[in-house]
Design a protein around this nucleic acid. Structure first.
Length: 352
DNA sequence: AACTCGGGGTT
DNA sequence: AACCCAGAGTT
């Protein structure tokens, strides 16, 4: 059973810590739901340092929800390139069009209506509703899980149904009903800067005395998270077709990573391939379809692109054709296409 | 309820 | 190498 006095103490310490330590971030200078929504989508599973330049570019390119709605999906994905979790960008664009064309550019004004928007879940709906409209709904993100689990000494796993429900209730209990928007940002900022995942600043923490995890020396054990699945290895052979001025890009359409981004024609295999093995593959032969070509391996040292759940071993094969590439694109236009970082790095290194 | 979706920062 | 990040959608 939790101590009511501790909960009040917790709230006040967090609020006063925030007044002293909060960063001056651009979306904190506004309560425009478009800007708050945009910032929250960009920051899903993304550190502020990584998302901030994207936010600035999006606001500059698309000052209003109408500007974003009128853009092409490819333009939105291109601006999103490098941020990852690309379905966020597609949902962002979808919702911009919905708000612009079906809601007259006005965002919904309650948690429950906001949550109906594509790409807006529990967390994001709570954030927008509390920050923009003062609705008393608690956010629960990775920071909140960490701060609450440590301070109240809760070892229920945060990524299973029971823990998700428990921490939502706890977060709601300690929410500052007078200033929910500022308080929500305060507890997240506190988690990001003070109660950090590793090497938290307990020595200078105003909550140290009443922090259960600190008193029990369990800070480094909380929060508890159930095991992650292991990393899958994949082997990609990208076929970089070249004629005088062109190359070939293809969209990724399968339900897989990088859906709707572009790449060179891909031959995926179960292991690294030699030149002989590659040139016997059906996918490769279909692509070449009897044309004469010169081929060389761009990176004899296989590059490894590491994603959260996949390690992708990649070889780039440069294939020069004497005749024009069917459906090829001008090399100079390659920058118009949204591509994974793996491809962008190659384009840069190769000098395409 | 478990899986999937990126890329980068911190130890 | 392991863990995490202002999570959401799908199966």
């Amino acid at each position: 059973m939790k101590n009511r006095a501790n909960e009040i103490d917790f709230r006040e310490v967090v609020n006063s810590w925030y007044l002293q330590n909060k960063r001056d971030l651009p979306w904190r200078r506004s309560s425009d739901p478009y800007r708050i929504w945009l910032s929250e989508i960009i920051l899903q599973q993304t550190r502020i340092d990584q998302g901030l330049p994207y936010y600035l570019r999006f606001i500059k390119t698309f000052p209003t929800v109408f500007d974003l709605a009128e853009a092409s999906e490819q333009q939105v994905l291109k601006l999103w390139q490098g941020l990852g979790y690309y379905s966020r960008a597609r949902n962002l664009h979808y919702t911009a069009k919905e708000v612009a064309y079906e809601m007259e550019g006005i965002f919904p004004k309650s948690f429950s209506e906001l949550k109906k928007l594509k790409g807006v879940g529990e967390y994001t709906a709570s954030a927008i509703a509390s920050i923009c409209y003062g609705e008393a709904v608690a956010v629960v993100d990775g920071n909140v899980y960490r701060v609450l689990s440590r301070y109240f000494g809760v070892d229920t796993p945060i990524n299973a149904t029971e823990g998700i429900r428990y921490f939502k209730e706890l977060a709601t209990r300690v929410l500052d009903l007078e200033h929910p928007g500022d308080y929500n940002q305060a507890i997240m900022e506190f988690g990001a800067m003070q109660c950090k995942p590793q090497l938290p600043l307990c020595a200078s923490c105003g909550l140290q005395i009443s922090c259960v995890a600190f008193q029990l020396q369990r800070v480094d054990k909380l929060p508890v998270k159930l095991k992650k699945n292991k990393i899958k290895k994949r082997y990609f052979n990208y076929i970089v077709l070249l004629d005088h001025q062109h190359t070939l890009l293809q969209a990724r359409t399968k339900k897989d990573i990088w859906q709707h981004l572009y790449q060179f024609p891909l031959v995926e295999s179960n292991d690294n391939l030699s030149l002989d093995e590659l040139t016997k593959k059906e996918d490769f032969l279909d692509l070449i379809s009897g044309k004469s070509y010169d081929i060389r391996l761009f990176n004899p040292k296989v590059s490894v692109h590491k994603l959260s759940h996949q390690h992708i071993y990649t070889q780039f094969w440069i294939v020069e054709l004497k005749e024009p590439i069917p459906n090829g694109i001008h090399r100079k236009n390659i920058r118009e296409y949204p591509v994974p970082v793996l491809i962008a790095n190659f384009v840069k290194d190769f000098g395409l």
